[in-house]
Design a protein around this nucleic acid. Structure first.
Length: 423
RNA sequence: CAGGGUGUAGCUCAGUUUGCGCAGAGCACCUGCCUUGGGAGCAGGGGGUCGCAAGUUCAAAUCUUGCCACCCUGACCA
């Protein structure tokens, strides 16, 4: 990608009225645009990160047997009346009448539609277990959207639903989902505390939240840094300074962001929609369900909260919008100018041909300082500089975003470097 | 929903206290010159119903009232 053509420009100053780190840096870096409070547009840079997050999620969900599908956002009233949630979720549902007067809503979650659809696919114990998921836009009329991407009114959610013959089978999958979630967070460069929490309005059963320590969070976490044991403060009976119930560590308290959660739903939705299966003896039983959510957009915002410094973002490698930020620094008019340009262009083509993703800063009117400042703000993990200075040494200059100083690599070493880091 | 804060150019803001300085600065953008290792410089130029609506006044960005939007704290939060 040539940076001069990139849709979405960086801003020199923080946007007014944004306090949260993720909102400031993402807007300033040209990753997102704010349409309304809690409603963000993803520009190319932000979309690339989001798609990387989604790719990781898809890989991990597919690995535990998930089948991807896509459910509609537009929902008929009647469907939600079956579970009582047309009224129960009234406060957060965007509800309206269409031009013919029919009442409908934008889905804030998808248990109802999926339970209904599953009645066409699940009849026998032979059809179970079953795992389906989607990455889809949810709409919730939050009383107060805040903290940039952390709490929005329109936001992306990966929601997986599992269907089982019984609680025992659900438990087995629940553990697999737990492990898959841990892998998602780890690959996204986030340390998540798997936290015991209440079941919310879905279930009397317990649930688990995946909490990431951050001042931008809305929850309070009581946790043990030593073994990772954690409880949400709202249900916790332990206190700060107490001994960890699982090891010899001490309990600490911190703000945290709930970036994912897993729930045991039981048969609430199966009962409401008549979702039954016939067991081996031909007896009808309600299907047991579980649900598993991660917000990719919230995850993106969380990464920025956790991985940022005074100059900008530091993207974890696997989610970065590009692998390499290639910067050319042109000298004043003269032979050197064309030489640097040619060398940078050749390097860009070589890198792309080798399969690296590259943002190539070939903007001629920008000064070196501005290019570096933009690179720090955008936060691509590797910065590669081609300049007269580097060419004199037959080298390119390579720097990790978090490194103090760059290193010089001979041109003929660069191929091996790329192979090691990117392929 | 309660409390607090903020709305003036694409962005960040000054001007509002004390109404006739009435459209300002920096950045960004356009033209030309110059410049290229940490957000350069010179010259010229384009760009704003001062959040919206009423009201007071000879006169309103400035005063009054109502509304809207955004941010923060809380309430709320599968």
């Amino acid at each position: 990608m040539h940076q001069s053509k990139l849709f979405g420009k960086t801003l020199r100053e923080d946007p007014k009225d944004e306090v949260s780190v993720n909102a400031r840096l993402l807007e300033r870096g040209g990753f997102v645009y704010k349409t309304m409070a809690g409603v963000y547009d993803y520009l190319p840079l932000g979309w690339r990160v989001l798609e990387n997050i989604n790719r990781i999620i898809r890989e991990e969900m597919n690995a535990i047997g998930g089948q991807e599908l896509l459910l509609s956002a537009l929902q008929p009233k009647e469907r939600w009346q079956k579970t009582g949630r047309w009224e129960g979720l009234e406060e957060i549902m965007y509800r309206f009448k269409d031009n013919s007067g029919r009442e409908m809503a934008l889905a804030p979650t998808h248990e109802e539609p999926l339970a209904e659809i599953a009645t066409r696919s699940i009849f026998s114990y032979k059809d179970l277990p079953l795992f389906v998921y989607q990455i889809q836009t949810k709409f919730r009329d939050e009383p107060r959207a805040k903290s940039g991407l952390i709490r929005g009114r329109e936001f992306l959610m990966k929601d997986l639903y599992s269907f089982h013959t019984d609680e025992k089978d659900l438990d087995a999958f629940y553990k697999k989902a737990d492990a898959a979630y841990r892998r998602v967070f780890s690959r996204c460069g986030l340390k998540a505390f798997v936290t015991e929490a209440s079941g919310g309005t879905f279930t009397k059963n317990y649930s688990h939240e995946f909490q990431v320590l951050s001042e931008a969070g809305e929850d309070w976490l009581l946790y043990c840094a030593k073994c990772g044991y954690a409880q949400n403060k709202e249900i916790s009976k332990i206190g700060v300074g107490h001994k960890c119930p699982k090891c010899t560590g001490k309990i600490e308290q911190g703000r945290s962001i709930e970036a994912g959660n897993i729930f045991k739903l039981g048969t609430k939705f199966s009962d409401a929609f008549g979702l039954f299966y016939a067991d081996a003896r031909g007896v009808k039983n309600p299907v047991v369900m579980g649900s598993y959510g991660i917000g990719p957009g919230r995850l993106l915002g969380t990464m920025v909260e956790v991985h940022a410094d005074s100059r900008g973002i530091l993207w974890p490698d696997e989610v970065a919008p590009f692998g390499i930020h290639l910067i050319e620094l042109l000298p004043r008019e003269g032979g050197g100018r064309a030489k640097v340009k040619k060398a940078a262009e050749k390097l860009y083509k070589d890198l792309v041909a080798k399969g690296a993703t590259v943002l190539y800063d070939e903007r001629e009117e920008k000064t070196a300082g501005e290019k570096f400042a933009d690179a720090d703000l955008i936060g691509i993990p590797w910065r590669v500089v081609v300049s007269e200075r580097s060419l004199e040494k037959k080298s390119v200059e390579v720097k990790r975003r978090d490194a103090e100083a760059p290193i010089l690599l001979k041109m003929n070493q660069f191929g091996a470097f790329i192979k090691k880091e990117f392929l």
